[in-house]
Amino acid sequence: MADDDDAARTALLPAATLPRGRTVQVGTAFAIAAVLMYFGGLFGIYLAERSVVRTAGLEWIPGSVDIQLTAPSIILWTYIISMPLAAWAVYAIRRDDRKHAYMAFALVLLLGAMTINQAAYNFDSIGAVADNSRAETLIFLIGGSHMVLTLVGMLFFLFTAFRALAGQFSSRYSDAVAAAAMFWYVIVFLYFIIWLLITVSK
């Protein structure tokens, strides 16, 4: 009975106005610029320190650290696979295809969790000690920062997924989902740079 009353009352309430388009995306773009510069600063220090050490004829990454290509490459592929899924979430929500949008959200979150798990395993297995050398400190800092960034990206997706579940995103308004996807692409881009910098060129 009470549920019926609620339903009747809800039906009488006006629907919320659409938020203004582009606002969330523009804000996210600015945040992305800041994130890029944070990592730019770290990459710059990494390269500068590496250059100093190598110019002196020394070993940059200590022999005790074993950075292999396999695990980071799998992480990179996991990230790459997550990109079309993020795009799928946007595509689906713009067509009011909620079922597939929820699937895409869930898959992005799953792959995000997988990358964090793999990165943690990778840190554990390379035999690096955070304060052993400049290289190791920087590897931990860059990798750790990227893990936190991935977590933030997942939270962004989780928030949008929740509001999508509540019916607040649709073909008429999907900016927040698009913004979450924009943010996710940058996470993948940054991992690609990290992969090149630390795993490939070391």
């Binding site: 773009a29 610029a33 890029l36 510069m37 500068a48």
Partner: peptide, 22 residues
Amino acid sequence: DHSGYVVLVFATVSAAYLAFTL
């Protein structure tokens, strides 16, 4: 100077990203 160079390259990337987004 790798550090300064990379910071300037990333400033380029960030600003270009914002330019094309806008």
